[in-house]
């Protein structure tokens, strides 16, 4: 139990550092940036403390906002994702997800991919719509959302498989 807490704190700091130092400067084609820091919310233990997740997601987002001068957009997007997470689990893994021992960072099954995909889409939708904050450039925003989502998912999956210790 204590171990899980330490792992989460470590993950929180590491993902934020990598996001701010590397991925924020990665302007692919000029405007597409991946946001793999949301892996913290995706990989948070399924039966972990829910209030803890919501509070730490808010903190995660606020720190991102602090570093990228984006007001409160990252905080809002992270909060929405953290709050929707149980429903996403229910959708991706079936109703009885709480009794299964689900681990996201294992072999990529269709369920796990669905979960990651939906999480990234929800986060990016909230993030980019709030960032644009008007419907005048809706087409540009939608294209950015699409491309960024693809980019983030690829990098998330790469990170999961790079870091995952192969026990078996």
């Amino acid at each position: 139990m204590n171990n899980a807490l330490l792992v989460n704190i470590f993950r929180f700091i590491l993902l934020l550092a990598v996001q701010i130092i590397i991925f924020n400067n990665m302007n692919f084609l000029g405007y597409i940036s991946p946001f793999p820091y949301i892996l913290f919310i995706i990989l948070y233990p399924v039966n972990g403390n829910k209030s803890g997740l919501i509070a730490s997601s808010f903190l995660l987002g606020i720190i991102m906002d602090l570093f990228s001068n984006s007001g409160g957009t990252h905080a809002t997007a992270c909060l929405v994702l953290a709050y929707m997470r149980p429903s996403l689990f229910k959708f991706a893994f079936g109703l009885s997800y709480e009794y299964q021992t689900i681990k996201i960072n294992e072999i990529l099954s269709p369920q796990r991919f669905t979960f990651i995909l939906l999480s990234v889409i929800i986060h990016h939708f909230t993030l980019f719509l709030l960032e644009a904050f008007q419907l005048l450039y809706i087409m540009d925003t939608l294209i950015t959302i699409l491309l960024s989502t693809i980019f983030t998912i690829i990098i998330c999956i790469i990170i999961i498989y790079l870091i995952k210790p192969n026990k078996r």
Binding site: L66, G71, G72
Partner: peptide, 23 residues
């Protein structure tokens, strides 16, 4: 928390006001 973050977002988009959260 949603209220706080939305407030910060909307505040940052309004003209003639500096951001509360800045780098």
């Amino acid at each position: 928390l949603l209220g706080i973050s939305l407030f910060l977002t909307i505040q940052s988009h309004s003209f003639h006001r500096s951001k509360i959260i800045s780098s």
